[in-house]
Amino acid sequence: MLDFSPFDISIKQDGMALVEASLSSHEKTDYAIWDHDRICLVKRGRITLDYVAGNTELSDRDIIYLPAGVKHRWITPASHSAALFMICYDKGFFTAPPAVHELFSGFGRSFPALEKFSPDSTIRAGNIRYLFNKLMMEKRSKAPDMKVITLGLFITLATRLLRTRREIIEQKNMTSWEQSFNNSLKYLEENIQEKIGIAELARIAGLSYRRYTEIFKQQTGLTTNEYIRRKRIELARKLLQETGNILHASLDAGFGDLSHFYRVFKQVSGITPKQYIDGQAAISRD
Rank of each mutant, 00 (worst) to 15 (best):
F4P: 02
P6A: 13
F7C: 13
G15R: 01
M16G: 08
L18Q: 10
E20G: 07
S22F: 14
S25I: 07
H26V: 06
H26T: 07
E27K: 04
K28S: 12
T29C: 04
D35Q: 11
H36G: 09
D37T: 09
D37F: 02
L41E: 12
L41C: 11
L41S: 11
R44P: 04
T48G: 08
L49W: 02
G54H: 08
T56C: 07
D60W: 09
R61Q: 09
I63G: 08
I64S: 02
A68V: 12
G69Y: 03
V70R: 02
V70I: 14
H72F: 14
W74V: 01
S79F: 15
S79A: 13
S79K: 08
H80Y: 14
H80S: 10
S81H: 14
A82R: 00
F85L: 14
F85V: 05
C88I: 13
Y89P: 01
K91P: 11
K91M: 06
T95F: 05
P97A: 05
P97G: 10
V100A: 08
L103S: 01
S105K: 15
G106I: 09
F107N: 05
K116F: 12
K116L: 15
S118F: 04
S118V: 04
P119N: 02
A125C: 03
A125R: 03
N127Q: 10
R129D: 15
L131W: 04
R140T: 15
T150R: 13
F154K: 00
A158I: 07
T159K: 10
L161E: 02
L161Y: 04
R163S: 11
R163I: 15
R165Q: 12
R165T: 04
Q171L: 03
T175G: 06
S180Q: 07
L188N: 05
E190A: 15
I192T: 11
Q193M: 02
E194T: 09
K195E: 10
I196E: 06
A199N: 12
E200C: 05
L201F: 04
A202Q: 00
L207K: 12
S208G: 15
R210E: 12
Q218Y: 08
Q219P: 00
G221F: 02
T223E: 07
E226T: 05
R230A: 03
R230L: 01
K231A: 12
R232H: 09
I233V: 13
E234D: 14
R237Y: 00
K238T: 14
L239R: 12
L239C: 02
L240E: 01
L240W: 09
L240N: 06
E242A: 06
T243P: 10
I246T: 15
A249S: 14
A249I: 05
S250G: 14
D252K: 13
F255D: 00
S259L: 05
V264K: 03
V264E: 05
K266M: 10
Q267I: 09
V268H: 00
V268G: 00
I271Y: 01
D278W: 09
D278Y: 08
D286Q: 07
